[in-house]
Design a protein around this nucleic acid. Sequence first.
DNA 1: TTACTGACCTTTT
DNA 2: AAAAAGGCCAGTA
Length: 103
Amino acid sequence: MATDFTRRALDVIRAVPRGRVATYGQIADLAGNPRAARQVVRLLHSSSQTEGLPWHRVVNGRGTVSLPRGRGYEEQRAMLAAEGVVFDERDRIDLKRFRWNPA
DNA sequence: TTACTGACCTTTT
DNA sequence: AAAAAGGCCAGTA
């Protein structure tokens, strides 16, 4: 059932380097479907259990963590901070500096 | 097969 | 600047 997109998306996620973050749309784009950002979400939910997936390096296009507090927000934020990613006073990441830029 | 859902994105009030 | 609305894709019931 896994479409090519799904597989490629997973590869892309695994390829995100430490200390960098990627947006859902970006991943979808690199996987071949610029509009399938939502699908990426489902992937993370399905595969987050499977270790080896840096789900914490995926954030929304605004550079903020989408997870609700107490449901991973703090956890993701902590992991990113441990990798050197900085959150500003508004709890946003400066994508200009931390967004993963492939190529 | 149709209907619903989701850690979204972009454009428009 | 902030909030609302519409659009999109794939997987699951």
